[in-house]
Each structure stands twice: as C-alpha cells, then as structure tokens.
Design a binder for these strands. Sequence first.
DNA 1: TATTGTTATACTCTATAACTATA
DNA 2: TATAGTTATAGAGTATAACAATA
Lengths: 170, 170
Amino acid sequence: MTTEQTAPAPAPVKAAEADDAAAAGLASALVRLTQMLQHVLAEAGRGHGLTPQQVQLLCALSSGPVGMSELSRWLRLGKSGLTGLVDRVERRGLLARTPDADDGRACRIALTPAGEELAGRAHAEVTARIAGMAAGLAAGERAALTDAVTRILDAAPCRTPSPEAWPDQV
Amino acid sequence: MTTEQTAPAPAPVKAAEADDAAAAGLASALVRLTQMLQHVLAEAGRGHGLTPQQVQLLCALSSGPVGMSELSRWLRLGKSGLTGLVDRVERRGLLARTPDADDGRACRIALTPAGEELAGRAHAEVTARIAGMAAGLAAGERAALTDAVTRILDAAPCRTPSPEAWPDQV
DNA sequence: TATTGTTATACTCTATAACTATA
DNA sequence: TATAGTTATAGAGTATAACAATA
C-alpha cells in the first residue's frame, strides 16, 4: 500500500528491491499458513459433521446471542446466505432463533446446550492442533508470533469484527 | 496434541494453565488472521471475476505445468472437484490442458499467457495488501514473523504441498 | 423511507461413487 | 490390478435481487 514507488537514487532502489522480496516472502508464508489453517478448521469440523463455515458460526455465537445483521457483518456473509447457514445449523438443533423483544423485525440467534458443547469441543480441538503445529517454536517465539499477528489484526483498516468469537477460555 | 494431561503437582498445574491460555491466544489470533486473509484473497480475485479457489489454482500453476493428480494433492481437492474447477477456468481461457507425452492417461495443465498475466497481477495485489496490513510492524518483526510461520509450515506433519505456488518474484 | 430478515435464483465448491482408458 | 482423469449426483456456500413486515 504505502511502498515507495518513487526512488530515484540507486541505493534506495536496492532497498526497495529488498523490501519487495521480504514482502513477497511474508505474503507467501501467510497465504500458505491460511491454507493449512483452513484445512485444520475443516478437519476439526468434519469429525462432528460440520462444515468450516458452520464451525465459524458456532464460534461466533459462543460469546452470547447475536442478531442476524451483526452476525452477517462478523462472518462477512450476505444476509441471504446467512439465513441458509442458520437454517441448516438450526435444523441440527445446535442453535435457536428467538424473536427480539425490542424490535419486531429482528431475531436473536443463540446456541442450544448441544451447540455450546459442540462449539467448545471444536474450539478445543483447533487450539490443540495449532499448539501441536507451533510446538517446534520456543515459548518466547510463540508469544512474539501471537503479539505480531494480534497487532496486524487490530491495525487493519477492515477489522476482524469478531474479537470475542474465539474466547480465551476453552 | 502433546499437552500434559497428567499434572499432579500444584506448580506444574499452574504452568499448564498458563500454557493453555497462551495456546488459546495463539489459536485465536491465527484463526482470526485466517479469516482476514481469506477475505483478502477473495477481494483480490473478485476484481478479476475470480473465486478464491480459482486464484489459488492460478497461483499453483504459476511455477509451471502440472498434472491433475499432483494439483489435486496441492490444493487438497478431490480429483472430481478439480476437474470442474479446471473446466471453469479453462472455459475462461486462463489455462489449457495438454496430453502428457509419456502417459496416455494423464494430462498437464498450464497457464495461458492471459492466465499468467492474471496470476501475476493477483499475486502482486495480495502481496501489496498483506504488506499494507503488516506496515505497522518493524522490519525486524516482520522478518521474525515470516521466519516463525515458515518454520511452522515446514515442521507440520501435513506439509503444505505447494511451496512454489507463491514464487518470491512478483 | 430505511432497516430486518426471508425467499428465489443461479453459479460455484465439496464429496462420494461409478465409470473409461491406459499402465 | 492399479492409476489418471471424467461423469453424475447431491448438498453446501456465495452473491444478487425482489419481497414482507416493522421502525
């Protein structure tokens, strides 16, 4: 975004090239990591017959009941698609829609006890798998990694809107 | 995976609890990062009318022609699903199937010039966006982040099978 | 009029199984 | 027999637009 495009002197040019290489290396690593984590999420859900999006939904609900609009923003999903997703998970008895007392148009989505149990189990599984993957790093490196990623997320112009979706407590 | 489940003494219990909290924090951060990066990939593709999976396919092909089986492993996709994905991208003229000279059953998938151009552009866009997201970190922190993530990927039992999918050169 | 949520539609992705043609 | 790739089918995700009910 804010990379220097105007670097007339020879030395800055070399520096810009090095920056580009570093940026490409970081991007490559993060994209590969994303693919691997998507796989981790998919496998964690599959054992319980859940798709990755359904796991994501359960986790987004584990901090308490939420309305469809807010959920739609959290999951970056159109209202329409969310209706279908919620329908399918509701059919399995993992969540329930209740009318909003204050707004006749709205409803609130909440986990059922079965949904809460499954959400907790999926969260624990994902946490354990990621801990296993990061076991080769020293504790200090893991802490630095957590810190760096957190700062990237918090500084992003388009915030991840569900900071509570993955509660710290297992 | 290898978390201590048997910790009788009081002190180790406390240490285990701290470890659990750290593990949950790392998992939470990485899962949130994954969601954000999926969004980055989706947006980078959407500008060109590509789905995230199609972007991934183009990138996997940018290091040279590949057979369907190998591609299937790289993308963690069933042979069947891959056929459809390749069909759709081929229909847009971004790749081509050519029969394998050595094996009458096999074929090799290669980018067309248009596909190469689009792959390069998508790669540059993703790299720029990620660089923008990480701009708040010091250069040394970015390097440490790249290193930590790379080591996680390389140590994982289930390797990301496309280390060349995102070449370092833009 | 603006917002909440649903319905309708079309396309894409994912997974399984059956199939062909080569090796 | 085993492998490479396709076809068929079904369910799920994604995006747009039109719609009903409420604010």
